[in-house]
Amino acid sequence: MSVIFKKTKGLTDTPFTYCPGCTHGIIHRLVAEVLEELNIIDRSVLIASVGCSVMSYEFFNCDAVQAAHGRAPAVATGVKRVRPDSIVFTYQGDGDLASIGTGEIVQAAHRGENITVIFVNNAIYGMTGGQMAPTTLPGQVTTTSPYGRDTHLQGEPIRISEMIATIPGAAFVERVTVVDPLTIRKAKTAIKKAFEVQLRNGGFSMVEVLSSCNIGWGLSPVDSLKFIKDKMVPYYPLGNFKDKGVQS
């Protein structure tokens, strides 16, 4: 008899504060498992952001710096530049990264900053109560697009991975999701590659994870995963957008 799945040492014993069924928990676990498998928990520094994952520093079992809204890539730059031996990663939602923090994420990629970014895209501001994000789908109802996102007034949703991939300093950019065991395994592979890029001083790596917000979307946890598959993936195609091949 052997244990084939148990909680990783990359997570603390603090229970997640996320809503039931929120896939943040899965993404936390995948990142933490990667830290453990690469044997880097002891030298990792998480840059926590603002949004639902604001308290992620309670959950990852490593040192952490809590950043202001959107500024995590700048804070990560500061940590990594003075402590290049540390493994530095940000964990940011789409309000944080794709709205208030677009300057910081674009410029961190532009500098080829040797950090890893975990970008959790659930097409909504979860923490503040379900407002429209730049990633909100056309027609999607949120508390600040109560009649559905009108693309004439509010624009088309922004595809961050595709944009970041065009920047020369970006070494690895992939979009994944966590809607079933297969996609979860693929997500973990991508996250691991991203950290391996950093371990090899390869430059900027980012994994965008399409995630759920069942409370904000007004769906059950199971239906939320279906929403990702049926509505989000067609607009935000999964796959690798940039791989300079530095991780192996």
């Binding site: 990783t8 997640f16 996320y18 899965i26």
Partner: peptide
């Protein structure tokens, strides 16, 4: 391990 993989709260341990 499918259940453990998708569990958002790391509730499940799986043994073979």
């Amino acid at each position: 391990s499918s259940c453990a993989l998708i569990c958002p709260d790391v509730v499940i341990t799986v043994e073979r």
